[in-house]
Amino acid sequence: MQRFHLFLILLSVIASSVMAQDADQVLSVWPKSPPQWTPPTESERDTSGADGRPVAGKPVIRLGFVSTPQVHVYRPAENDTSTAVVICPGGGFSILAWDLEGTEIAQWFQSIGVTAIVLKYRVPTREADPRWKAPVQDVQRAISMIRAGTIEGVRPSRVGVLGFSAGGNTAAHAALASERHYDAVDSVDGASCTPDFAVLVYPAWLVQEDDSSQLIDTLAVDENSPPMFLAHAADDRIDAASSVTMFTTLKQHGVASSLHVFATGGHGFGGRIAGAPTDAWRGLCESWMKSKGWLAP
């Protein structure tokens, strides 16, 4: 059994080296094993087959069976704005849309002076209860790593979190958490794990099934909640109420946020240009961040 476990780790390392080709640095999130969960028995790999749905005419890396969480660091080449963002790709808590909602978004942030940290969080957790807990633990640890200065050359003044779909659910839980969802493991966890802002793009499952005007019980907004930017398509199979209700609740508590619901665009568009209204979300997000003073005007 021990040999099998070592074999899985080796395959994970090989897969990680392929996925990290453009990253400046790759670090493990946890010094040893992550908090208790039920890890996959299969090795980490791209699960996309020949019939995998492309987005904007390009294939998507659907990274599955992630048991070794990592941060993939993308530093801006110039004009560092002292802003960092932890990026949580989506994938229904089953896989990670690694390039579409991860590395491609990181490269865009690089271009506008933001340090991007793509989080390879644990999946699958779809059968766990709650399914967001292990991913949120990974987010919280990643934010503490950034704030504790454990990532070489990364000393931001502010740290945000961005998530797509299930990653948006994860980002929302991390942004609104009232506590750390794991016991501290070392001095790194002495640093805050609460983000300064959140960007939620077509976030999934934020509202109650029987009342979409109310957030789920595990999401509690108050006047100290971080500001959020939300983007969603009206024709998304994941109800746009997740974004609308989050925005409305933030507004009720005086948290200045920004909401954009586009007529069309569907689900899972990432940051790719597809000739749809949703192509505009990145520019709108950049303008919002500039209005907050987090980017150069």
Rank of each mutant, 00 (worst) to 15 (best):
L8P: 04
L8T: 04
L8H: 08
L8N: 03
I9K: 14
V13K: 12
D22K: 12
A23L: 06
D24V: 05
W30R: 10
P31G: 11
K32T: 14
P35I: 08
Q36R: 14
P39V: 01
T41M: 13
E44F: 09
R45H: 15
D46C: 12
T47D: 13
T47N: 14
A50I: 14
D51C: 05
V55N: 06
V55F: 07
V55K: 04
P59K: 07
V60Q: 04
G64M: 11
Q70D: 07
V73M: 09
A84L: 08
F93D: 00
L96I: 09
A97D: 03
W98D: 10
W98R: 09
E101K: 05
E104F: 02
Q107S: 13
Q107Y: 00
S111F: 02
S111G: 06
V114W: 00
K120W: 03
R122W: 00
P124D: 06
D129H: 13
A134Q: 15
A134W: 00
P135V: 10
V136P: 12
V136E: 10
Q137D: 10
V139S: 11
A142W: 03
I146C: 10
E152H: 13
G153Q: 11
V154F: 09
R155F: 05
P156N: 07
R158Q: 13
G160E: 08
S165W: 07
S165Q: 10
N169T: 13
N169E: 13
A174R: 08
L176C: 11
S178N: 14
S178Q: 15
E179M: 12
E179L: 12
R180W: 06
S187T: 15
G190T: 08
T194C: 13
A198R: 00
V199R: 00
P203F: 04
W205S: 15
E209N: 06
E209G: 09
E209W: 01
D210N: 15
S213G: 13
Q214N: 09
L215A: 01
L219V: 03
E223C: 05
F229K: 00
A231P: 05
D235S: 10
D235N: 15
R237S: 14
I238A: 13
V244G: 01
T245A: 05
M246P: 01
K251V: 08
G254K: 03
S257E: 03
T264M: 08
A274R: 00
G275W: 04
P277D: 02
A280C: 01
W281H: 06
C285W: 01
E286W: 01
W294F: 12
